[in-house]
């Protein structure tokens, strides 16, 4: 890779499990190579809380609540290229299992009937993100440029994808790197 200006990358996890981020860390020693070409903006890795202007935004997880939308929109606004990383960002994934459970039933179960709850009460604190009726993939909320599937996407796939992007190539995955689970 040429000694060009480093690409600025932001990452976040919405309705996800951070597994995709773990897979990113799984590229192991190649991380050293990677950081020669990229620098991180907002990311759980840097603990920067807001997303500034970036080249690439990587989003793990689907959209399940109002806060997710605000984060996602900030990413879309600030990132030249937006990437949906992993099954949840792309299809809603495991969290979307709740899509056929009525939201009333969800709240009842969590705050009233759950084990160990007595006189449970539904919280109304504005600090708690308010959930949507359903969990959605991020491309149903903002325009997405690239999709990298997997649960999580394999470390090799993430490496290949990022190095392709950094080199200005159209990212292309080999057959074994493409899977949905």
């Amino acid at each position: 890779m040429a000694e060009a200006k480093k690409l600025r990358v932001a990452t976040c996890s919405l309705a996800g499990c951070f597994g995709c981020h773990m897979s990113l860390l799984d590229i192991d020693e190649k991380l050293f190579e990677l950081v020669k070409h990229i620098e991180f903006d907002r990311s759980p890795l840097t603990d920067i809380k807001t997303c500034g202007p970036c080249d690439i935004g990587i989003v793990e997880g689907g959209v399940c609540n109002a806060e997710n939308v605000h984060v996602l929109k900030a990413f879309r606004k600030n990132c030249r290229i937006l990437v949906a990383l992993g099954a949840c960002a792309i299809t809603g994934g495991i969290p979307s299992w709740r899509n056929n459970v009525d939201l009333w039933d969800c709240f009842q179960e969590v705050y009233h009937y759950g084990i160990g709850l007595e006189k449970g009460q539904v919280p109304n604190d504005p600090e708690l993100p308010l959930p949507f009726d359903k969990v959605h993939p991020i491309n149903e909320v903002v325009r997405v440029d690239y999709f990298l599937p997997g649960c999580p996407p394999p470390a090799d796939a993430i490496w290949k994808f990022l190095t392709d992007l950094a080199a200005g190539r159209e990212p292309k995955l080999d057959y074994e790197m493409l899977h949905y689970d």
Binding site: P137, E140, Y146, L148
Partner: peptide, 9 residues
């Protein structure tokens, strides 16, 4: 890489 269309769920 993506189901692309809006999910029916």
């Amino acid at each position: 890489l993506t189901p692309h269309f809006t999910h029916f769920y």
